[in-house]
Design a protein around this nucleic acid. Sequence first.
DNA 1: TATTGTTATACTCTATAACTATA
DNA 2: TATAGTTATAGAGTATAACAATA
Lengths: 175, 175
Amino acid sequence: MTGHRNETHPEATPAPAPADVALKLEEFLPYRLNVAAGLVSQALALVYADRHRFSLPEWRVLVTLGQFGMMTAKAIGAHSHMHKTKVSRAVALLERRKLVTRRANRADLREAFLSLTPAGRDVYGELAPAALAFAGQLMDAVDSADRPALDRALTRLTERAAQLAPEFANTNGDR
Amino acid sequence: MTGHRNETHPEATPAPAPADVALKLEEFLPYRLNVAAGLVSQALALVYADRHRFSLPEWRVLVTLGQFGMMTAKAIGAHSHMHKTKVSRAVALLERRKLVTRRANRADLREAFLSLTPAGRDVYGELAPAALAFAGQLMDAVDSADRPALDRALTRLTERAAQLAPEFANTNGDR
DNA sequence: TATTGTTATACTCTATAACTATA
DNA sequence: TATAGTTATAGAGTATAACAATA
């Protein structure tokens, strides 16, 4: 895929020299996404860093269970883009902290139904509004006219990247 | 965008007991950014995974030097959002591979001017177009009418997240 | 004393595979 | 044989601080 031709820009290039399409890191989309996601994660960590200290996988499990109420580990992984080993370990940690509980599925003993304990729901009820407020603070920085486009763009980029990414027909989600 | 009241579930639902929390992971901006950035990075890795195998810090140093020609490690870190230790190690690896060379600054012997070797420029000249083509493939997935908004939104989000993130008045950039 | 850059250390994550128990 | 989930292992990546050399 070492394409050279510059056919990927349908709209007219404002640049005077069409031949010289320079790679500028600060304009390079993967870099910008990485920096943005990293800073956002770092800032978000403050929301649940003081009282509780959750890893990102734990946070995702907590939120997913808070959202859906009860589901299997596999379903959690599918919904939160996490490999089954990540889910397994995150669930184990949350169980140890009495925030998640499991109930065997008598129809299929390989899996179990996971859900938040009352304590888990308390934590979720405390963190979810804070997380939403945080996302609101972020979104407030974006011009309201640009928000629908951002939403669409993120969806398309994720789809496309998933197509281009390696091993996506695997057992579970990724990384 | 902190959606509040959510009365869309009149029927008895077993799950969310506390305040009607409308936190949906799949709509949560930090999560979406994380997933998008992760998949994009994974896909991008294919661009420089076969021949050369660069870590992300190495890739950033290479691109930054390719873009600016010659600069100090500190300047590289500032431009590519990397801590000095990351830059130091990435540069050391690239030097070992004869892709980067250093020249002492006789006006200040603490620092050195780094630049790509001819071999480094060859690699850059090979990878940069591939990277641009990759970014083009990504961008092609986004409706062209949405691209300027995406650009603005990413800038604003990064700014805001940097404000909200911890310890950003530090010595250097972050992670 | 402050700054550039390097190194050491410990720690967190992660991927991968191997394994279990069920189906 | 296939699937849900767990555990083992090893490797990569990271942050932090301590350090050396120079200013």
